[in-house]
Amino acid sequence: MPSEPPAPAPLLSARGLHKSFGDNHVLRGVDLDIAPGTVHALIGPSGSGKTTVLRSLNGLESPDAGSLRIADLELDFARPLGRRERAALHRASAMVFQQHHLFPHLTVLGNVTVGPIRVQGRPKAEATADALALLERVGLREKADAYPSSLSGGQQQRVGIVRALALQPSMLLFDEPTSSLDPELVGEVLAVMTELAGEGWTMAVVTHELRFAREVADEVSFFDEGVVVERGAPERVFGDPRHERTKRFLRRLQGPFA
């Protein structure tokens, strides 16, 4: 993936996303712009709507209102998405889940190739070769025939990343990809993500890893109670937060240990 020169038009642009679960108004007008080839970190307290936004960017959640553009796909959430629109959205972005959600009955290779072969209709030989090359890059080539249950948490999450990459999406979505890992396994996953960022992948990352956000992200959005309270370059948001709620959140997160 060659890194593209900074383009004026964002690759992803969401406007006015609203979502309620019953009486719970979870998203209250979220705007989000992500330039191609950049990493956008979504941070904020628990329940602020980060996961809901990310899932909306993959069609796993349907906002009640708002609009979304990814690459050349344009969607208006005012009416329910059609089957084709949803399929196009699944195609445009690919998600790495917090709990990886690998398919336990398929081998590592099967997990990675089932989408390209069965959904996208790519030739099996080609999809397999691509999958093996991707596994090689994350150091899991020799695990191709293993089942997910025999892998460590960090390996499972790296397979989750390869599964997303193999779909050849326009951008990658990560929902706290390291927060269910043992601390000693976090590094190997963040290393892969850092490498992908370096290759020019466009990424939206919900994370509590402030160090990762600071070092890898190009931009940070701070969420609170369903809105983006503050956004900017990580040095700015972390170094000089303008909003009281951002300050409070960072103080709490960095706390006495920072």
């Binding site: 796993l60 089957r83 399929a87 699944h90 690919a94 889940f97 398919f103 997303a164």
Partner: peptide, 22 residues
């Protein structure tokens, strides 16, 4: 688990495919 249906949807499967293959 619901996550299996979601992962299947994420890779682009229809509900029928998710049911049959996953």
């Amino acid at each position: 688990p619901r996550g299996q249906w979601e992962a299947a949807a994420m890779i682009g499967m229809s509900r029928g495919q998710a049911l049959g293959r996953i």
